[in-house]
Amino acid sequence: MFVVYSSIYKCVAAGQLSSTNGTKIDDDFEGYPIDMFCVPKHYYNYVENILIPRGVIADRTERLAKDIWDALGDGRPIVVLCVLKGGYQFCSDLMDYIKAFNRHASKSVPMRVDFIRLKSYENDRSTGEIKVIGGDNLQSLEDKNILIVEDIIDTGNTMMKLLKIVSDHNPKSVKVCSLLVKRTSRSNNYKPDYFGFEVPDKFLVGYALDYNEYYRDLEHICVINEEGKKAFAV
């Protein structure tokens, strides 16, 4: 267990860990061997390493939930807008923690959940076109406090598109929480209000992040290898 969490301890010691700015995972971090954890056999040969174990994700998500609840838990209703499909697991776990704070505190905040689905990737590359291919009636966002929950911010272009769509429906306020922010030269420098981890420019799968709809059933966030890309290409 010490080996698994040692990189997180190093981030704390180096001042790289903060509640809202995320935990920085360095480019040269090699991750953890897959034989240290339970990985489905059908992915065993298609994962390079485990970048973020499930337990670390859970601990970081709990802290993000606390930060969000402290900032927004003033009795004003919140609409949580979950970006599907990749954000569903993170959103579910984040809300479980926020609901726990709601149950055990003197103040609480009403919440409800809406969903939107966007698509910008085919295989491991962005198509350059962002499609809204599903979602509820966003007219209900008018004059509401919105918390957008996303799995990963890559270039930032998808989130900027979504923020424009949401703003067109006249919300009262909008905050964004992403589990991951990718460190890439393609970024437009957008950073969400809350995020869990700043990660290297690698294609990540697991914990509901997919590669052509595969790998969502992995518990951990992993780096896909070249064999995996070929095996599940479209």
Rank of each mutant, 00 (worst) to 15 (best):
residue 97 Y to W: 11
residue 138 L to M: 12
residue 125 R to K: 13
residue 85 K to A: 08
residue 147 L to R: 07
residue 89 Q to W: 07
residue 151 D to V: 10
residue 117 R to E: 04
residue 114 D to L: 12
residue 116 I to D: 05
residue 121 Y to K: 10
residue 148 I to F: 04
residue 157 N to K: 14
residue 112 R to H: 11
residue 153 I to G: 04
residue 126 S to N: 14
residue 148 I to C: 10
residue 97 Y to L: 09
residue 84 L to G: 02
residue 80 V to N: 02
residue 122 E to G: 12
residue 84 L to D: 01
residue 160 M to D: 09
residue 95 M to F: 00
residue 142 E to W: 00
residue 174 V to P: 00
residue 82 C to L: 03
residue 99 K to H: 15
residue 176 V to E: 06
residue 156 G to D: 05
residue 126 S to L: 13
residue 81 L to R: 02
residue 82 C to D: 07
residue 145 N to F: 11
residue 161 K to C: 02
residue 93 D to L: 13
residue 165 I to H: 04
residue 145 N to Y: 15
residue 128 G to E: 06
residue 162 L to V: 12
residue 110 P to M: 08
residue 147 L to G: 02
residue 131 K to N: 08
residue 164 K to V: 06
residue 120 S to Y: 08
residue 89 Q to D: 06
residue 130 I to V: 15
residue 143 D to I: 03
residue 140 S to K: 12
residue 149 V to N: 13
residue 166 V to A: 07
residue 105 A to E: 15
residue 124 D to M: 09
residue 175 K to G: 03
residue 139 Q to D: 14
residue 117 R to S: 02
residue 155 T to Q: 00
residue 142 E to F: 02
residue 127 T to E: 10
residue 102 N to C: 02
residue 132 V to T: 12
residue 130 I to Q: 04
residue 95 M to G: 00
residue 138 L to T: 05
residue 172 K to E: 05
residue 95 M to T: 10
residue 137 N to M: 01
residue 140 S to Q: 14
residue 135 G to M: 12
residue 86 G to Q: 03
residue 164 K to I: 06
residue 104 H to M: 14
